[in-house]
Design a protein around this nucleic acid. Structure first.
Lengths: 193, 193
DNA sequence: CGTCTATTTGAATGTACTCAAAAGCGGTGG
DNA sequence: CCACCGCTTTTGAGTACATTCAAATAGACG
């Protein structure tokens, strides 16, 4: 298993010595998740933070009316998990499901704590991840408030380049908060330009 | 100036010794902000995390079409700031404005770093704040995707009890992502039940 | 090839917006 | 103290955006 991707990801924010890299990678656990299998389901405790080395996942809830709502997609080079459940070790509310055969590198809470103790700069790394995720969510709220479905669809295409070729349209619709029928109509209209 | 409120807030997540409390409060700076004055404007660097002791603020952006969009309201007992700008010491994108005469307790980045060094458990405290804010944002995204304006209005009333009496309706509309006219119509309809 | 699910299409409906104008309300100056 | 100004809220008509329901078509997979 190669750690190139994850080490490159970490090095975007912090600098590690070779020894620290070795410690870090020794704490990781590589896992394959087949398409349509779950990394997490509501009620379970999220025991890992997960770095996606290859593949693609979606994070969603099912509301009381039985409707799915996709919070986010995650592709190669992104971290995914249920932040709240992981840190509080409380039951998750989210589904996290592979949409392709996916390889993740996982770190559990115990390993995370050891990492913080031995390589404190990782506190900074994960805080930056959290901040970025927070800001991304904030932007998404503002987008949903400001823009029509068509504008949001264009932004989705920018934000997740190529992803529209990898995931079913109805999931993109769910992410955008519109019906699959309406997305289909939008695409038809947009194509005609 | 009384530190009761802020100490009570901190004690919800971490436990401090009397000496630690003294250090913490000595790092705080109390500030009055008159109604309609700004705590932060886009382009400025957010130099403080702010705990609201009394009053009420709103955090918003103005989009390229000149429309205001309220990201959040903050009342007594809440922390407010521009997370990204504060941690990266980069220009803010948000307006933070007092909607009443407001008293905040501020801590700047230098003081924060000293606090982390001398009372490391504060790392945990602010991480929990950030996580909670993240989860709150996530829920708001899902609400905007799942619910009609009427349902979102009810949830606003639950989430910010009494705030509808303190802020103009048009700001509530901005928070909900609807026009003031439509909120007015909604209220009329809901009153008739 | 058949089955299951995803996507498209269309008509009818509902939700929310725009534009315009009237009514309400708070503050300020004469 | 009242009149006026500016801003918020309400009201209504017409329109645009997005949904629902139903059915046809197209793709994916065993």
């Amino acid at each position: 298993m190669s750690f190139d991707q994850i080490l490159k990801n970490v090095s975007r924010h912090i600098r590690l010595t070779p020894e620290e890299e070795i410690l870090f990678t020794s704490l990781l656990h590589t896992r394959h998740i087949a398409c349509r299998d779950f990394l997490l389901r509501p009620g379970e405790v999220c025991r890992w933070e997960n770095f996606i080395d290859r593949g693609c996942m979606r994070t969603y809830i099912i509301d009381e009316k039985g409707m799915e709502h996709i919070v986010s997609f995650s592709v190669e080079g992104w971290w995914v998990g249920d932040m709240y459940s992981f840190h509080a070790q409380a039951p998750a509310t989210l589904y996290i499901e592979a949409m392709e055969d996916t390889i993740v590198q996982q770190i559990d809470k115990t390993a995370m704590e050891r990492l913080y103790r031995e390589v404190p700069v990782f506190e900074r790394f994960f805080r930056i991840l959290l901040q970025n995720a927070f800001v991304a969510h904030q932007n998404r709220i503002l987008q949903n408030l400001s823009f029509t479905a068509e504008e949001r669809y264009r932004q989705f295409m920018d934000h997740y380049p190529g992803l529209d070729q990898r995931v079913p349209q109805k999931m993109i619709a769910s992410y955008l908060g519109i019906t699959p029928q309406f997305l289909s109509a939008l695409r038809k209209k947009m194509a005609g330009k």
